[in-house]
Design a protein around this nucleic acid. Structure first.
Lengths: 253, 253
DNA sequence: CGCTGTGAACCATTTCACAGCA
DNA sequence: TGCTGTGAAATGGTTCACAGCG
């Protein structure tokens, strides 16, 4: 979900639904694997299984791109790989900067998945002078002072923020001012950006919390009756009121 | 969204929409920040701004939890923190294991956001004997051989997979067999799991590809020269290199 | 009066089911 | 005949707009 105020009201011309765009990389990955095994064609059923979706959805998705299949046969793997790559803009080179070279930033710099598609880590940037010049994943870290120059010299339009939360907005502002128009944010903060700038966020803690929600519910169902919930809680900075079951509760204070 | 074949047919009783659940951690984070600043109450408008959503959505979301606000006033911060925490299951302790202690696994182990909520890193597991016993983030890495025992001894129900793609399904199967019912997957693979097991995935490469799609489109619009997005993005025309020739993204390890 | 809570309208996405082509 | 491509229905989510309460 793009976070920024990026609600393009009506994506003119080739309006591909956002949900479809989000699945294209999935199809691409599955197709790439098939391509490596020299599989010439796939049916929507097979490809859907490999991508983890159902076949009707896949066919509908592809129908937004055009009619690239052959009835009675399926899809040509190589051809589809190319079409999807092109649609995603992966047939061009995307220089990317990573700002914040801590544990996570270093992991990202080393992540093979970047280079393998159209992405290229153009620079690593950190505010810590002690890191400046030190190579991480074979690339010397540069100092934040030079951020603007780095962006401009490399024609970077995509930035990755892996700084602590406190620094993220500031870094974001500088990236945007320097010309970056797409940001992948790993810092646990809501970034505000001007219109026209896309932000996507990845938040580990949020993902875990969503899992916890479902996990909790499973535990509840399991113990059919009430009064279940194992030895719970160790958290309680909560408000005065705070039994367990949801009392019709009225606000305290 | 949860990836696994986890279509629970009818979430009875407290049917909180998935989309709402996904936003609760966002609200919680914003509320926690307010709580730290000792702000007693917030309006839906203010809280929505802090969480990066609009106020109508926020109010609708909260209405699924119950009526925790006061008309004419707003929401009591502490009380809401408690209610949302409880709803998400964060009032209990969730031991988590991280499998695959490469760059990413180490970054995750060091990630403060885990511990700060109800999550506790119960164990780090890796297949590399050279790592066994070595402390990462203060926790000694254990060997994959002991995976089942570790899961059971610690009562772990949430597992994080940060292994290379090739090992992910196997690790997943073992985790599930040992009793794990929620998985956060960082490996670029579609995991198949039995019903009742939730899988969420985080894929860096996919996020970047989605950004690239929008970025490419911006470049196109710009060329059309309209009274649109001023964004001064520039990117290398880039050699429209071959359609394929890319390697499957493999996670660092 | 101000702000929450919520029915109802609206919009996006998914699923169904089948027509139509190779 | 088999599988794609796609209208149409169903579902899920968002936004509107205002009634109702503190």
């Amino acid at each position: 979900m793009a976070t920024g105020r990026t609600h393009r009201p009506a994506t003119r011309s080739r309006g591909i639904p956002e949900a479809t765009v989000a699945r294209l990389p999935l199809y691409l990955r599955a197709l790439t694997a098939l391509s490596e095994r020299s599989v010439p064609t796939v049916s929507s059923e097979e490809l859907a299984a490999a991508a983890g979706v159902n076949s009707a959805k896949l066919r509908k998705d592809f129908s937004y791109l055009g009619s690239y299949g052959t009835r009675g046969v399926g899809y040509d793997v190589e051809y589809l790989v190319y079409q999807i790559s092109r649609e995603l803009g992966l047939t061009q080179d995307w220089p990317v900067v990573i700002v914040g070279i801590g544990n996570l930033g270093a992991a990202l710099a080393n992540y093979g998945g970047f280079a393998s598609r159209g992405f290229r880590v153009a620079a690593l940037i950190d505010a810590d002078h002690a890191l400046t010049g030190k190579p991480v994943a074979g690339i010397p870290v540069q100092h934040t002072d030079d951020l603007e120059k780095i962006i401009q010299d490399n024609g970077v339009s995509i930035g990755v923020i892996a700084t602590p939360a406190g620094a993220a907005q500031q870094v974001c502002d500088r990236l945007v001012a320097a010309g970056v128009t797409s940001i992948l944010n790993f810092a646990p903060t809501v970034l505000s950006v001007p219109d026209g700038v896309d932000v996507r966020k990845v938040d580990l803690s949020i993902e875990l919390q969503i899992l916890a929600f479902h996990e909790q519910r499973k535990a509840g169902e399991e113990a059919a009756g009430e009064a279940a919930v194992p030895a719970a809680a160790r958290k309680q900075p909560a408000a005065d009121q705070g039994p367990d079951g949801d009392v019709p509760a009225v606000m305290p204070a």
